[in-house]
Amino acid sequence: MMLVEGERIDRIAGTRDSIIQSQDVFSYSIDAVLLGRFASIPIKAGRILDLCSGNGIVGLVVAGRTKATIQLVELQEQLHSMAERSIKLNDLTNQIVSHQLDVKNLQNAFSHGEFDTVTCNPPYFPVHSNKLIKEKVAIALARHELACTLNDVISSASFVLKHGGKLAMVHRPERLAEMMLVMQQNGIEPKRIRLCHAREDEPATILLVEGIKGGKPGLRIEAPLFIYQADGEYTQRFQQEYFNE
């Protein structure tokens, strides 16, 4: 397997699997691994779709929890290529397939109601006409809603989810109200929320949300996750959930 200049192979936290990353594009962060562990997924059989999949991190984490098939959708060719090679690196070609595809064109590639679970770690930041984005194009596309909006992602997820299927997303806490509204507008009822904080005395920085297509109202707020102790070491709970220790 060939690595492109600037690429490296990293071990995925809490797994035996590896992933190809690059200094030129957005590397995976805590958010993606937490999403892969938070999402409710079919364990023995079923179909899972990961949108805005980047280099495949969420799909690879999810693969360690299930025998279900997993489809990845990523717009950027470079990230799609890295995901494909990471899948081969971990001998997961029989379980995971990566597609280079625009989320907004999902209906042209998949059937209505095809998936049991959809996961997504989307671009976090809306684009304002008066804001100049100075990042590299690949990083800007991963961080900002240049290619797809929150509504694009959720409406596409709703199309491919079966009735009773689940959408799990990670995002920024300040967009919680918007997320819940857009989910309900697309027939997905928010059912679980978890907030993650860097430290116990600091505001949340990571939001995990899961909803059910066609679900009944009833929202559960799960216990918060604190990442660091006062001394800067990881909390025991975070180590258990992130590193499987």
Rank of each mutant, 00 (worst) to 15 (best):
G64E: 14
R11I: 05
Y28V: 02
G46V: 09
L34C: 08
I30W: 09
I48G: 05
V33Q: 05
A63V: 04
G54C: 04
K67F: 13
S40P: 00
F38C: 09
R11W: 00
V58W: 08
P42C: 10
K44N: 13
V73R: 01
K44Q: 14
R47V: 03
T66P: 07
Q71T: 02
I19N: 02
V58M: 09
F26T: 02
T15Y: 07
S53F: 08
R37M: 07
A32G: 14
D50I: 10
S22E: 00
Q71K: 09
T15S: 15
G59C: 12
A39G: 13
R16L: 07
G46F: 09
D24W: 06
D17W: 14
R65F: 10
L72E: 12
V62I: 15
S40L: 04
A45T: 15
R37L: 08
L72M: 09
I57L: 10
V61T: 14
V33A: 12
L35N: 14
A32F: 05
I43M: 11
V58Y: 01
C52Q: 11
L34W: 13
G59M: 13
S27A: 04
Q23A: 06
Q71P: 00
K44M: 07
A68G: 12
V73P: 03
I19A: 03
L34Q: 13
D31K: 13
D17S: 12
P42N: 09
R47G: 01
G36S: 13
I30D: 09
A45D: 15
G14F: 12
F26M: 12
F26P: 01
L49G: 04
K44P: 00
V33L: 12
D24E: 14
G64D: 12
I20W: 04
G36M: 08
I70M: 08
R16N: 14
R11N: 02
A13K: 06
G36F: 05
L60S: 11
G64F: 00
S22Q: 02
A13N: 05
V62R: 04
G36L: 05
K44I: 02
D50A: 06
P42F: 11
F26G: 01
F38V: 11
T15G: 10
S22W: 01
L60D: 09
I43D: 00
A63K: 10
G64A: 11
R37C: 07
P42V: 14
Q71M: 02
D31L: 13
T69N: 07
R47S: 10
